[in-house]
Amino acid sequence: MKIAALSDIHGNLAALNAVLDDVRRQGADVIVNLGDILSGPLYPSQTADRLKPLGLPTIKGNHERQLLAGDPSRMGPSDGFARHSLRDDQLAWIRELPTTLRLGDDVLLVHGTPQSDLSYFLETVTESGCRVATHDEVEGRAGDADATLILCGHTHLQRSITLDDGRLIVNPGSVGLQAYGDDRPFPHRMEMGSPHARYATVTRAASGWDVEFRAVEYNWHEAADLAALNGRPDWETALRTGYC
């Protein structure tokens, strides 16, 4: 079984199309979508129309939860842009998505961790910024999740770790946004360092699961120009460079 894991598309339709083309060339038995699908200053409605007919196993991320809740005028700029762009049928599609999902008996899809769509799984934020999580920290976050493979997103960083009991946790990185800054719980930056769209393939082998991280070229300058046109210089820089 070969799984193509996509996450954090953030309405970047060009990046999504490039990744789907790469998946077709690489081959996969199933493509999964780990959330944060539409929010951002690019193409939320068009991205929803691209994805919905594919019927991919898909979960909500924190941004899906946020753009469905409360007053759109009080949302952050990424969620607010998406909310005003989406049709009722697209919002209904998002509303029906689960927060976690199982593929068979031993693959678990989560956005952040099994407990929270906002928690980082493989990274830890301190007063000094963001660092790679320790083995013990990841063990605690995995808890008793009963799966040999846990696929997560949220941090936009490609990373994997194998726990002592053999469980593999994989973050495929972000399809649509290769850097962002946040101030919770402390100011920090998440940066991949290049603008390539990212995803991962995970293949079941005799010895367990094998991971391949993929980086795909697309027209990121066009995406960056659109972000600038829509008043998001932070996105423009991130899309063009992979840095904040």
Rank of each mutant, 00 (worst) to 15 (best):
A5H: 05
L122Q: 04
C130M: 03
N219A: 14
A4S: 07
N12V: 12
L34C: 09
Y218Q: 05
D21H: 12
A48T: 14
D49P: 10
W235K: 11
T241C: 11
K2Y: 02
L91Q: 08
C130E: 06
G35W: 00
G70A: 00
R159Y: 08
A206H: 03
A200G: 03
G166Q: 07
L229P: 07
L86H: 02
R198Y: 00
G140M: 11
R167I: 11
P77H: 10
G153E: 06
R50I: 14
D71P: 12
G129V: 12
L226V: 13
H111E: 01
G242T: 13
A48P: 05
S73H: 15
A147P: 07
T162S: 13
E64C: 08
R25T: 15
L118R: 14
G166I: 10
T162H: 08
R87K: 09
R159V: 13
L20K: 05
A15E: 01
A206I: 06
D105Q: 06
G208M: 07
L86T: 07
L109I: 00
G27W: 10
H156A: 13
R131V: 15
A223H: 04
Y120W: 03
R159E: 00
L54P: 12
H10Y: 04
R184L: 11
H10V: 05
G55Y: 02
D71L: 15
G27R: 12
R189N: 08
L67Y: 05
E137H: 08
H188F: 09
L108V: 13
L51T: 08
I37S: 14
P233D: 02
